[in-house]
Design a protein around this nucleic acid. Sequence first.
DNA 1: CTATGAAGTTAGAATAATCTAACAATACAA
DNA 2: TTGTATTGTTAGATTATTCTAACTTCATAG
Lengths: 238, 238
Amino acid sequence: MKVKLSCSINRFSLYIDLMESLTEENYLKALLTLTGESREVTVSALAKKLEIKMSTVTSMMKKLARKRLVSYRYYKPLKLTEKGRREALLIIRKHRLIELFLVDKMSFRWDEVHDIAEQIEHVQAPHFFERMDSMLGFPTIDPHGEAIPDKDGKLERASYHRLSSCKAGEAVTLRSVANASAEFLKFLSSRQLHLGLRIRIESVEPVDGSVLIRYGKRHRETLSHTICDRLLVEKDSI
Amino acid sequence: MKVKLSCSINRFSLYIDLMESLTEENYLKALLTLTGESREVTVSALAKKLEIKMSTVTSMMKKLARKRLVSYRYYKPLKLTEKGRREALLIIRKHRLIELFLVDKMSFRWDEVHDIAEQIEHVQAPHFFERMDSMLGFPTIDPHGEAIPDKDGKLERASYHRLSSCKAGEAVTLRSVANASAEFLKFLSSRQLHLGLRIRIESVEPVDGSVLIRYGKRHRETLSHTICDRLLVEKDSI
DNA sequence: CTATGAAGTTAGAATAATCTAACAATACAA
DNA sequence: TTGTATTGTTAGATTATTCTAACTTCATAG
């Protein structure tokens, strides 16, 4: 499928192969999200993430390596190049801007926006995203608390703590949700847990790491260690 | 390229083949826009519209005929089935809703929105378009004056006149632009010609069919027959 | 240090959408 | 009515993305 982008002022037409860029963009994005401290990703992890076979990953890596988006050597872990990383971050930027737009300007819930953003993030129209950006007041945080990369693909890394690593007696503010899935976000909403919420940690159960918290007017909940591991908080100063 | 649409409530995932539906959607849309009174389209016209070879059209028509979206017989003109027509109208609906959203809610000019809408129209997310629809107050006309098909793919046909067929002395209101291209729309804007504008026809030149019009505070323009043919107007009552 | 299983690669095939080149049907002009 | 140009179809090739099945490399447990 080819898509024609025309510019009637300068009388030229540019054909971009949408499929190709769509597929490639999904590989780059997956690589970035799998990238940890070492910035290296295994073929099997990428295959699992994209729900494709390892052999398919291998052949696509050769292609992306030719384009200098990924550095790839036989039997070695995959790594985004700086160019690849930047491209991936710009897609993430579009994704997160869309999510915030859907929530702030179109009244969607935070658990509804991922799948829509996943589709619109491939739109090639810089002024569309610039307009979104300005309508939103040049935001830096998306509805799930994740940082929005800037126009150059630079990412501000916030230093939050996992709720699972906090101690009894601490007071914290909920700032971000890791691996936000619709299910998990709905779970949080059902407990009136939202970003910006101040939380007091009453106790931490040594047996299973579950945490008893208090928040709002009179909320009191016990959250499992699994849940707390995905809640990123800022410790209240003083 | 496959895209996964997940529904976490009911725990099912639906894979739609985006490329396939994207390509097919473009064929259906092209067929609809080429459809005239007879509702029949030639292979060559469709090939020209989509900028592909006739042989490619032939093979795709066999596929769409298998899916009962097009009725196709060797060497006979192409025709959308009712099902195909409805699908095409629902894509047009999305396209026009997006265009209006971009103009009304995101302050784009009417000449900027086509290419963006062309990309977003393939998004599969009914509630996204429903939300747009309600934010726009369930509109029936897009920024270029074209009718927006309803949720069932029904289209209200307005009975406008071409400015080129009007007589000297008539007073009309500009209601719609046929074959709106960015170029043409910019031309209109540069003359302060916009939808809803009341226009008086001063004279019609018999030689070339050009028309002298007056409008606004003190605008006076001569428009060629070619231009007037693409301006759809409503004759003022009384 | 080697054998074994996991991880990764290769070769070859499938599908979708496209093309070119050759062929077939149709329309219409003389 | 017949010849030619236009229109449409077929067959076979190409590219992108994916698969399966067979093979290779690596990591590590004994």
